[in-house]
């Protein structure tokens, strides 16, 4: 009984996750570019901690 409940919860979690991905995919293009610029700014320090960055790996200094 407990296991079934957990299974239902997981189905719900995956469904919400799919819906979240779908919303991001259907966002206006300018919003998606804004997300990309955010991703770049968030990821660069993590990438730099793992390996030397290539010369062109840096956040784009532009507006969406």
């Amino acid at each position: 009984m407990k296991r079934e409940f957990a299974g239902d919860r997981m189905v719900d979690v995956f469904a919400r996750k799919r819906a979240w991905h779908r919303r991001r995919a259907e966002a206006p293009l300018v919003e998606k570019v804004r997300i990309l610029l955010d991703l770049q700014r968030q990821e660069i320090p993590l990438l730099a901690a793992q390996r030397p960055l290539r010369r062109w790996e840096r956040p784009w200094n532009i507006t969406p």
């Binding site: 991905h21 991001r24 995919a25 966002a27 293009l29 998606k32 570019v33 997300i35 990309l36 991703l39 770049q40 990821e43 290539r54 062109w56 790996e57 840096r58 956040p59 784009w60």
Partner: peptide, 12 residues
């Protein structure tokens, strides 16, 4: 990909 799906990271 940005034009059709959710954003993924890229630097170029």
């Amino acid at each position: 990909v940005l034009f059709y799906a959710e954003p993924t990271r890229t630097y170029d």
